[in-house]
Design a protein around this nucleic acid. Structure first.
Length: 518
RNA sequence: GGCGGCGUAGCUCAGUUGGUUAGAGCAUGCGGCUCAUAUCCGCAGUGUCGCAGGUUCGACUCCUGCCGCCGCCA
């Protein structure tokens, strides 16, 4: 089986600026993508994100700024792209649903699906919420026919529309989810999805009349209609790679190994609607739905109205690169809701980044300068050495493999825990061997050289393993150690050789003093 | 209303198929070191493991009921 992997974030609906929640999803997917590149080779991984730019909410957001929809989404899509770039995400594809190539692809899929026979036209009368852009049944509404999501009255609309047969595929989809052929993780969301598939499903309305909304992709077989925004947006996962590789090759290769990263709010669309859309087009399903929770802010839901939303790049500029990424990966259990607060971020910063990682780097490089003139005099004692040496070597041995396995399971917090256990082992090793005491006796300098060689190797392995989680920091430490990429990836004890020069320390994470509140 | 989850040290949480004195990190207190970003190392804790029953030689871990919080579906 091919080990090609296609990784996606959700396609972000860009009617508002990206916030820390959007950043969290992009960061989790990016950590995963980087980890998979290390595991399978960069050539075997593609990573896709982008913006969802059609639909009524976009049209109205544009109107509110007195912009044409396209001008508005040009601006918003660039904003998302720049924020994610500022967070050092490594997308191979940035898809806009208004890209000409994407629009053409959606039309091809509509034609293809129509020819296969699962699209039909019928008149429909229903209660419609313009904010949700969907029809409701009376049972779903609050008294007075009020939309439960937006707390405003729905409208009675009567119109003809195109529908996609969904229930026809329900059994097939349920079986694939049950058997984990389409695996939903964590498993609690699998159960929720199966629950949703237990009852018959209404067919999906996939068109909107232009008389009501013309900001969309025209239905190729009826120019009075545009495609429903969700139908359009799903195909963003496929359109760009299909254009680059050819649809057939993409479908035969990476697509069945797709890893969708999505929030729990869009589980239903991805577990219930997306699979039938693919099956109706005669295409295979993705492999994994990786569902994450909400990022709460100080205990309450992060939202624009509560004023607790910050530009994700604020944290890059104030705390430095990688800090936000480290915090959300270390603190949040993937799949569960997490709590984000600046106070907690500063605690983590000081305890983990300044005191553990930064200070270890600093003390090891400082001793190497002071006692060895900056150049190693010995090999690491991975295979031999005394008890202390062996304890350190054991902590580093296989670290990269453990971290890679944990990242593959989306257990990012545990992966970082494992790395920090190695950092602890290195700090204990310094205390146990006390090279600063030995260095006072010139006869013991060879041992000091061996100890520092072990510590430099430990730092190298840790910095290398840290790359998916803290790419900038990883690069900084490897640069301080003066090692090239090939050396960086070596197992513990097989990297840096005697004679190798390392650089003097710099403070990677200056301690943040708590503001003295009077 | 149906289905499911959660409730463990001050805080955030681990606790595998039930088994000896219930763990980690942070925060707190004491001791040590001094290479280092006043950093690091060691020691000390404290917990009726939501409540009440039940099964068992033995339950945080299984069963029942209740309380509280939450999610999904209707």
């Amino acid at each position: 089986m091919s080990d090609r992997i296609h990784i996606t974030t959700a396609i972000f609906y860009c009617n508002g600026a990206p916030h820390v929640g959007s950043a969290y999803e992009a960061l989790a997917a990016d950590v995963f993508a980087r980890a998979m590149r290390r595991r399978h080779g960069a050539d075997h991984v593609s990573f896709l994100s982008g913006t969802d730019e059609h639909g009524d909410k976009i049209r109205r957001a544009a109107l509110a700024e007195a912009l044409a929809p396209k001008a508005y989404t040009d601006k918003m899509s660039a904003l998302f792209r720049d924020v994610f770039a500022g967070l050092n995400t490594t997308f191979d594809y940035w898809v806009r649903t208004t890209d000409a190539g994407h629009e053409k692809f959606v039309q091809e899929m509509l034609t293809r699906t129509n020819q296969r026979g699962d699209i039909y036209f019928r008149d429909y009368e229903g209660l419609y919420c313009v904010d949700c852009e969907r029809f409701y049944t009376e049972k779903e509404l609050l008294p007075g026919n009020v939309c439960p999501a937006h707390n405003r009255p729905v409208e009675l609309i009567s119109e003809g529309n195109y529908f996609l047969r969904i229930d026809k595929y329900r059994d097939e989809v349920r079986k694939k989810i049950e058997s984990d052929e389409l695996r939903i993780r964590p498993v609690r969301y699998k159960n929720e999805a199966l629950n949703m598939l237990a009852e018959p499903l209404a067919d999906l309305c996939i068109s909107r009349p232009k008389t009501r909304l013309d900001w969309g992709i025209e239905i190729p077989f009826d120019n009075r209609y545009v495609a429903y925004v969700w139908y359009d947006a799903f195909w963003a996962y496929v359109s760009a790679p299909a254009a680059r590789l050819g649809l057939d090759e993409f479908m035969a290769g990476a697509w069945p190994h797709t890893e969708h990263f999505i929030g729990k709010d869009i589980l239903k669309t991805h577990a219930v609607y997306w699979p039938p859309i693919l099956l109706a087009a005669g295409l295979p399903l993705p492999r994994h739905l990786n569902v994450h929770g909400w990022l709460n802010f100080g205990g309450s839901r992060m939202s624009k109205s509560s004023g607790n939303v910050r530009d994700p790049l604020y944290y890059e500029t104030v705390f430095g690169p990688d800090v936000l990424r480290y915090f959300v990966m270390r603190e949040v259990v993937y799949g569960l809701d997490g709590d984000f607060s600046e106070e907690r971020l500063i605690e983590r910063y000081n305890a983990d980044l300044a005191n553990d990682l930064g200070n270890l780097t600093s003390r090891v490089l400082a001793m190497t300068q002071r006692y060895l003139g900056g150049a190693l005099t010995a090999c690491a004692t991975a295979a031999g050495g005394d008890d202390q040496d062996r304890t350190l070597a054991q902590a580093l041995h296989g670290l990269a493999g453990r971290v890679s396995d944990l990242a593959a399971e989306l257990a990012f917090n545990r992966a970082l825990e494992a790395i920090w256990q190695s950092l602890d082992a290195a700090n204990k090793y310094v205390a146990a061997t006390a090279p600063f005491t030995l260095a006072k006796d010139p006869a013991k300098l060879p041992r000091v050289g061996a100890i520092l060689a072990n510590l430099i190797e430990a730092l190298r392995v840790i910095a290398d393993t840290l790359e998916p989680f803290m790419p900038v920091t990883s690069g900084k430490i490897l640069a301080l150690l003066n090692v090239d990429a090939a050396t960086a990836h070596q197992p513990f004890g097989e990297g840096i050789k005697p004679g190798h020069k390392v650089n003097p320390p710099v403070a990677l994470f200056p301690r943040i003093e708590k503001p003295q509140s009077a």
